[in-house]
Amino acid sequence: MTTRYTKDHEWVRLEGDVAIVGITQYAAEQLGDVVYAELPDAGKSFAQGDDMAVVESAKTASDVYAPISGEVVEANGEIKNENWQIINDAPQAGGWFVKLKPSNKAEIDALMDEAAYADYVKGL
């Protein structure tokens, strides 16, 4: 399944009926070492663009927005257990934030694909 990207550096990948969400490699590099992260609990619902999670590095605190609307079905247990290093090590794999049940799959298709996101980052 292809991965889609937001201008705020979140990624979404639909696997079956569940969308996996995290922050991009670029975002993780900009942040530097993550020293704290706060994820929502399963059962919480978000509209696209809502504050969904918080990630903090030594440098700054950043809000992570819900890239699509949906309900959290699972938060990454590694991050919940304070293994924040995984966000730096593998932001687009093991460092995912949450799995969402999308309420409108069309929101995903409207996001940038990998090539468009790469172009977008180049222009920053």
């Binding site: 705020d8 979140e10 922050i23 975002a27 900009q30 440098k59 700054t60 950043s62």
Partner: peptide, 9 residues
Amino acid sequence: MRHAPRILG
């Protein structure tokens, strides 16, 4: 993800 508007305060 959006950084706080101020970096390093």
